[in-house]
Design a protein around this nucleic acid. Structure first.
Lengths: 100, 100
DNA sequence: TTACATTTGACAATTATTGTCAAGTTAATA
DNA sequence: TATTAACTTGACAATAATTGTCAAATGTAA
């Protein structure tokens, strides 16, 4: 499975950068970045965009992956998750004016 | 637009029940229920299932609606929201083992 | 074994969510 | 119009979730 964390770790290692290099730029402890890369913690949206910049990853792709994980997190262990996803998709396509 | 709040309010009024009747059962202030019905606040998952019981609403349908709103809330004002939804859907269908 | 990178887990700080309360509207009607 | 009951509003308190630090533990290579 491709995950946000794995994408980040892979690219970081490919670039020969250490946790402390990146975490310094993000202004967080290495412990958190370690956890983010291993999927033990979620990054913030801001961290994702910074990481894309620092690691020269495609920002849109990374954000899509990140957001999809946030969505999945919301419906984890919900039997009706898939159906909720479909309703959400229809709603967003339909036109999101919640008036009336 | 059909929303969780509107479904609840409509059914409550159809039953001739007052905010204070329902909010007492939910053990919250009427102010919150009022806000939930008007979409100013989100309900908790527990409140949704209780509301379905109290108002004799179909629990699954109400939960699907509720969850879809939670999802949409996550991606509100995200340009890449729709794409994230699609990725989430694929992931969930594919098989959600995040191993390897 | 020393040195350095990473991981782990307890817990602190911060932020978001959920709630109360009291005062303000609204609408029906005495 | 004055009263009353239902609902709404907004300030703020309580609680819960998230995000962070730190120090010690683990792994790994020289």
């Amino acid at each position: 499975m491709k995950t946000t964390g794995k994408i980040i770790r892979e690219k970081r290692e490919k670039k020969g950068l250490l946790l402390r290099h990146i975490s310094a730029e993000l202004d967080i402890d290495t412990a958190i970045l370690s956890k983010i890369e291993r999927g033990e913690r979620k990054a913030t949206r801001e961290q994702i965009t910074k990481l894309a910049d620092i690691l020269e990853l495609d920002k849109e792709s990374l954000l899509i992956q990140y957001l999809s994980e946030k969505i999945l997190y919301e419906i984890q262990d919900e039997d009706l998750g898939i159906q909720a996803l479909k309703v959400a998709e229809k709603t967003i396509k339909y036109g999101v004016s919640k008036n009336k």
